[in-house]
Deep mutational scan, measured.
Amino acid sequence: NSLAEAKVLANRELDKYGVSDYYKNLINNAKTVEGVKALIDEILA
């Protein structure tokens, strides 16, 4: 998966839960796919 794909999928996942734009910005600023995954795990914990 590319970083861009990971960000799109992460933001879709956040949308399902009604997560605020603050967290979407964190996702969009992530530098690695692993970073995106770690943020998602933390946000949805």
Rank of each mutant, 00 (worst) to 15 (best):
I43W: 09
D41T: 14
A4V: 08
S20K: 05
S20G: 11
V33Q: 04
K7S: 01
V36Q: 00
A30I: 05
D21Y: 12
A30Y: 02
L26S: 03
A38Y: 10
I27W: 01
A30Q: 08
S20W: 10
E13C: 15
Y22Q: 07
L14M: 08
T32W: 01
A38I: 10
E13L: 15
A45K: 14
K16Y: 06
Y22K: 09
K37Y: 15
Y17G: 02
L3E: 01
K7I: 10
K31M: 12
L44M: 11
L44I: 10
E34S: 07
K7Y: 02
E13H: 10
G35Y: 11
A10E: 00
V8K: 14
K31A: 12
K31Q: 14
I40Y: 11
Y17L: 14
A45T: 10
K16D: 04
S20D: 08
Y17E: 03
L26N: 02
Y17S: 04
T32N: 05
V36S: 00
S20I: 05
G35F: 10
L26P: 01
S2I: 09
K31L: 13
A38C: 09
E5T: 09
N29D: 11
I43E: 00
E5R: 13
T32R: 02
N11F: 15
E42R: 15
K37E: 06
K31H: 08
K24H: 05
L3W: 01
I27Q: 00
T32P: 00
I40V: 14
L44Q: 05
Y23F: 11
E5Y: 13
D41K: 15
N1W: 15
G35V: 13
A6V: 09
A45H: 09
I43K: 01
L3G: 00
A6Y: 13
N29V: 07
I40F: 14
N11K: 11
G35I: 11
D41A: 14
D15A: 14
V19A: 09
K37L: 13
V33L: 11
L3K: 00
L9G: 04
E42Y: 15
L39K: 02
S2A: 13
I43M: 05
L26I: 08
L3V: 04
Y17K: 05
K24I: 06
V36R: 00
L14H: 01
G35D: 15
T32F: 02
K7A: 02
K24R: 15
L9I: 13
K37R: 13
N11L: 15
K7Q: 06
Y17N: 05
A38R: 12
N1S: 11
L44K: 08
L39G: 01
V33D: 02
K16R: 11
Y23E: 03
V8T: 10
K37H: 10
Y22E: 08
